[in-house]
Amino acid sequence: MLEIKNLEVSIGDTQILRGLSLSIGTGEVHAIMGPNGSGKSTLALVIAGHEDYKVTAGSVHFEGQNLLDLAPEERARKGVFLGFQYPVEIPGVNNAYLLKAAVNARRKHQGESEIDAFEFLQLAREKMKLLEMDPSFLNRGVNEGFSGGEKKRNEILQMAMLEPRLAILDETDSGLDIDALKAVAKGINALRDPQRSIVLVTHYQRLLDYVEPDYVHVLSKGRIVRSGDKSLALELEERGYDWVQEAASA
């Protein structure tokens, strides 16, 4: 599904990713953990195509295609989804309008017809119910005046509507109370599918109690320094990040 090789990325003059390699198979759930500043969000934004991040070496392939050649919207249309750590508020752009535009952009790319208004509403309401979101959120400005938890649920709602091939969820668990965390986890688990890969970028192990990853990677100073199964997350929770970093530099 996703093949990252020796990726080096800079923002301005600062190099953030220093030869990162990662392979994600179809249907797998991976967790990428690491201390602040290790490059987790950079990795997520590079995969989504943020122009501020310059790739200076290495490659990213998605289903065999060079992802780095594609504009952000082309990546989205091919099924790459980024759940933002800080979803932006866009006053004046209706949430339903954006959802529908996003769904139709993806459908059009897949050669399908546009979703009709009734079908769209039904689908949106169903997904919102799962996420314990009030349907009135559809008629509000995108993330406008949403609480932290509401913004994250809204990201998961977009993911649920778009049914991506690859979802990268950047710190989707941060700032959530336990109820919101459970709702978001429920939304993610509902999307688990043998045809879909999910990458959970997180600082804490907490989310992984609810969404069990197949693999856990530790990112430190721009590289994957350790990989393992979900027990690695528990170990990190217990021992902190220092021992992995020390082990890596030793």
């Binding site: 195509g49 504009a71 952000p72 990546r75 989205a76 752009v93 535009a101 952009a105």
Partner: peptide, 12 residues
């Protein structure tokens, strides 16, 4: 906001 919208499949 532009990047956010692009990441949802809208062209620039």
């Amino acid at each position: 906001a532009l990047f956010y919208l692009q990441s949802r499949g809208l062209t620039l």
